[in-house]
Amino acid sequence: MTPLLEIKNLKTRFFTSEGVVKAVNNVSYSMESGEILGVVGESGCGKSVHALSIMQLVQDPPGKITNGEVWLDGKDLLTFSEKEMKKIRGSDVAMIFQDPMTSLNPVFTVGFQIVEALRLHNDMTKAEARERAGELLALVGIPGAEQRLDDYPHQFSGGMRQRAMIAMGLSCEPKLLIADEPTTALDVTIQAQIVDLVKKLQDDLGMAIMWITHDLGVIAEMADRINVMYAGAIIESGNVRNIYKKTRHPYTMGLLGSLPRLDEDPGAELLSVPGLPPDLLALPKGCAFAARCGYRTEKCLEEKPPLEEIDGREHAVACWHWEEIAGSK
């Protein structure tokens, strides 16, 4: 069976006046349909840019996807024309963004913005689309959905706006929903509600979800697999059990070490590992994490470790010292 999404050697660069920002470096992984994939990593490590690259929405200029393949359902999206891509966006792959306050257009009603998405990809009359939009708003738990269609975004609270964004994302029943830190801008109780909502919707509708976050607690609860990113690359990836219980990368360990009781505190944020992430304008020759790593050796500074599969297909890590780490545990 071909995977739903398969990314191979994706590279995205920003050509700025200060130099080339290497935002995504050789990212490869795949996702099955119906799967929930968590993507974690420090701020600025390229999570959003890699997701935008899938949609081909990286701001251009200065951004460019310089290399790679993005296979969705057996088709390489990177070979698609802009016209073909338009059909994919919103219908096969939908995306919701971090800040619901600014992600909805303030001068159109919420209903209009959902109807617009519906009519773009489905052959629907205005009335049908409107009815469906009402159903969607009700589905994401907005009370009095029918009437709220005519409200403008500023008349919604932050949580409601994010619900509306989700409704918009789900409108065309995408196979893949990319949620880029959908709860970061919301307060804790609302965050929990949104997470529950997405879990419930996933149970009902069965789409695959890519959940980008800082929140390791939530991701442990909902994801099937996790990709840990550092400096534009995946440095550890595997199912939730392996990532949390058999951690093999010093960076992931640092992230988890700074996390108090996993399953009890859903609001826990990634606390940073000591030191700063490398400058994406000038990545080191060897392992990007070496400068902050306690296991660093000559080799780490000289050679970049590849992402190797360990424990069969369920776990992969990019570190020269993973065996040493496994032994010391």
């Binding site: 929405l57 338009k86 059909k87 966006r89 939908a94 998405a117």
Partner: peptide, 13 residues
């Protein structure tokens, strides 16, 4: 603005 990105993500031309 972010909402322009949203509009593009919807598939608008």
């Amino acid at each position: 603005e972010d909402y322009i990105r949203t509009a593009k993500a919807k598939g608008l031309g």
